[in-house]
């Protein structure tokens, strides 16, 4: 009996060791990409971004970073405001009808449509098929693309709030609107903000295919402010054959920005979350 137990224990150790190895192996590509980008990108990043800042001259990479922030903030502002509204409506008001029940699935499907299709929409509908689109078209297209993501994030965060909170609030005479505001959104807002940052970290790198379709003209020469993901794409297409290192710098900067957004999302993870999880069980 004891022998069988020992044998079981040894088999278990072997099985978990194999799974541990698989986990490490699956992380290796990410670590490899990080190290490769770091080794190839730190010098061009220093030369073309950090040094120009230090000596006070114009930096194209810095301008790209600013453009990235600009388009992300602009489009996120639209997407977040509408997304929160959609999330609240589906979670709190339409929860018993078909729209509410299928809402999460519909939003997930919309969020998973490749960005290039949204770019096509922006180019065909918002820019009416013209190249050389304006910033407003780019912002709107990005906002339309991000909206299902943001609504989905909101819906997920609201659905994490235990139904008991809603019932307790309404049992005290609160209306559905007051309950949504003070007993649901109040406790979900930390999670929503945190998830917005995490979602932005992913979305920031996916803007390139969308901008390829709608944003070629205004940034075609790459001399002005060009969002990072698009800059990486254009540099890859135009410069890699000439063995230049600039794309590595841009890619490294993009990665750093995405990781920073992820980190912010993790740091502002709501302090109440454990309490909410505990009360929900």
């Amino acid at each position: 009996m004891i022998g069988r137990l020992c044998s079981g224990g040894r088999n278990e150790r072997i099985a978990f060791s194999i799974l541990g190895c698989v986990t490490v192996i699956s992380l290796l590509p990410f670590v490899g990409i990080m190290l490769y980008l770091l080794s190839c990108g730190w010098r061009p990043l220093g030369e073309r971004c950090v040094s120009p800042i230090l000596i006070g001259i114009e930096s194209h990479l810095l301008m790209s970073l600013l453009a990235t922030v600009y388009v992300m903030v602009g489009s996120l502002l639209i997407a977040v405001l509408l997304g929160i509204g959609v999330g609240i409506y589906l979670s709190e008001y339409a929860c018993n009808n078909l729209l509410g029940k299928r809402g999460a699935t519909v939003l997930n499907n919309l969020a998973n449509i490749p960005p290039v299709l949204y770019g096509l929409f922006g180019w065909a509908v918002l820019a009416k098929g013209n190249k050389g689109t304006s910033w407003s078209v780019i912002l709107l297209t990005l906002a339309v693309w991000m909206l299902p993501n943001m609504a989905s994030v909101t819906l997920r965060a609201l659905n994490e709030i235990p139904p008991a909170f809603r019932r307790e609030s309404q049992a005290l005479g609160a209306t559905r609107w007051q309950t949504s505001l003070y007993a649901v959104l109040r406790f979900a807002k930390g999670r929503i903000i945190s998830d917005f940052f995490k979602a932005s970290a992913r979305l920031i790198g996916e803007t390139a295919p969308l901008l390829v379709l709608i944003g070629v003209e205004p940034w075609g020469d790459l001399s002005g402010s060009t969002p990072l993901a698009y800059r990486v794409y254009v540099l890859l297409v135009g410069h890699m054959r000439r063995n230049q290192t600039i794309p590595y710098g841009a890619a490294l900067l993009l990665l750093v920005v995405a990781l920073c957004l992820q980190l912010i999302g993790l740091l502002i993870e709501p302090a109440q979350q454990e309490d909410i999880d505990y009360l929900g069980n």
């Binding site: 235990p162 008991a164 909170f165 019932r167 307790e168 609030s169 309404q170 049992a171 005290l172 005479g173 609160a174 007051q178 003070y182 007993a183 406790f187 109440q272 309490d275 909410i276 009360l279």
Partner: peptide, 28 residues
């Protein structure tokens, strides 16, 4: 619901302080 208040089988306090829990209703 304000006039006839229900305390459910498993009462769930909000993840707030004692003060804010009781103040929730009056504030509403």
């Amino acid at each position: 619901r304000r006039r006839v208040s229900l305390i459910p089988r498993r009462p769930v306090p909000f993840p707030l302080s004692v003060f804010d829990n009781i103040a929730y209703g009056p504030r509403i």
